[in-house]
Amino acid sequence: MYKILPRILVSALLFSLMVGCASTGTSNDETKDWSADKLFSEAKARQASKDYKKSVEYFERLEARYPYGKYAQQAQLEIAYNNYKYEEPALALASLDRFMKQNPTHPSLDYAMYLKGLVTFNESQGFLSALAKQDMSERDPKAAKESFNSFRELVTRFPDSKYSKDAQLRMGYLIGALANYELHVGRYYYKRGAYLAAANRGKALIDNYSNTKQVEGALALMYQAYDKLGMTDLRDDAKRVLLKNYPDSNALEKQISDDAYWWAPI
């Protein structure tokens, strides 16, 4: 009995501590008695004051406590927006994908698509700012392509959406950016003597981004790359197409090292 008693006392003490910790944690939750309306309004207030982290906490509690309430679906969108503003793109995209999967006919589906495009659009800016760095062959324009695809889905499915006009403007920017990427990579290959790879990049630009101003540079790149390879027929074809479409072009007189020409503005 003497040996058992301390164990009982220890167990009782541990239980007391656990209960104390649990009650302390509950008492520290200022939202424990809040209604759905109050949680939503407080979360929006935090969002308005740019306290996105706290706003996410409130919206997550709202969604967990009232999963079938009138605010549950909106909370998912608000969480995605907050994470977008708080520069947590992976969390924002996860929330948006979950929302779109669970609510394929929701009235705010166009907004979800638009926001998804914005999240990846912002990510693509890091890719674009890195274009001047040395090893362009290892850069990945995945975010820019995903952003373009999200905006394209929006304007295709919801052409009358209030977000479609801005989405179209951003699509135009992204097309120019992706064309610039192809031209820049082609230039990278050319300067390192990989002339066939350079010519292929120029051809890919023309095939995929034929309505951009970078086509002129792509044709000039192909001309010079084919010339280095001794592929005279393809070289002359590139020159013929260039002069037919850009009769006043002086691109053939430019050198690959001329950054002012090859790094064309978007």
Rank of each mutant, 00 (worst) to 15 (best):
Asn208Gly: 11
Glu88Ser: 15
Glu87Ile: 15
Ser41Val: 08
Arg170Ser: 03
Leu221Phe: 02
Pro89Leu: 14
Tyr81Asp: 03
Asn250Thr: 03
Asp233Cys: 03
Asp140Val: 03
Arg61Ser: 11
Asp227Thr: 07
Glu182Trp: 02
Pro104Ala: 07
Thr31Leu: 14
Glu182Val: 01
Lys50Cys: 13
Ser161Asn: 03
Gln214Met: 05
Ala177Gln: 05
Lys116Cys: 03
Ser210His: 14
Val185Met: 10
Ala177Phe: 04
Gln102Thr: 06
Val10Glu: 15
Tyr190His: 06
Gln214Arg: 02
Tyr68Gln: 13
Val119Pro: 06
Ala75Leu: 09
Ala143Asp: 06
Leu128Glu: 09
Gln224Ser: 11
Glu63Met: 10
Glu87Asp: 15
Gln224Glu: 12
Leu229Phe: 04
Lys213Asp: 03
Met1Ile: 11
Tyr58Met: 08
Ser35Glu: 13
Leu229Ala: 04
Tyr188Gln: 04
Pro89Trp: 12
Glu60Phe: 09
Ala45Arg: 08
Met1Ser: 12
Met222Asn: 00
Ile79Ala: 10
Ser249Arg: 01
Val185Pro: 01
Leu128Lys: 10
Ala218His: 02
Glu138Ile: 13
Glu88Met: 15
Thr212His: 05
Leu221Trp: 00
Gly176Phe: 01
Lys44Arg: 14
Leu131Gln: 12
Met171Thr: 01
Asn208Cys: 09
Tyr226Val: 00
Leu39Glu: 06
Glu87His: 13
Gln168Cys: 05
Gly117Trp: 10
Ser150Trp: 06
Pro265Asp: 08
Gly217Glu: 00
Gln214Thr: 00
Ala225Leu: 05
Leu39Ser: 07
Tyr111Lys: 04
Leu196Ala: 09
Ala132Ile: 15
Ala72Thr: 05
Lys228Phe: 09
Glu182Met: 07
Phe158Asp: 01
Arg98Trp: 13
Asp233Trp: 08
Glu216Pro: 00
Ala197Arg: 07
Lys70Asn: 11
His184Cys: 14
Ala198Trp: 02
Arg98Asn: 14
Leu196Asp: 05
Asn250Tyr: 04
Gly25Arg: 15
Met231Asp: 10
Gly69Met: 06
Thr31Pro: 07
Ser129Ile: 06
Lys85Cys: 10
Leu221Gln: 00
Asn122Val: 11
Arg139Lys: 11
Ala80Ile: 05
Ser49Ile: 04
Glu182Cys: 05
Gly20Leu: 13
Lys50Ile: 10
Gln47Met: 15
Gly20Cys: 13
Lys162Ser: 08
Asp236Ile: 02
Leu17Gln: 09
Glu87Gly: 04
Asn250Gly: 02
Met18His: 13
Lys50Tyr: 12
Glu88Tyr: 15
Ala64Thr: 07
Leu77His: 07
Phe40Glu: 06
Leu178Arg: 05
Met231Glu: 13
Lys85Ile: 10
Glu63Asp: 12
Asp97Gln: 14
Lys239Gln: 10
Asn180Phe: 03
Lys165Ser: 12
Asp37Ala: 15
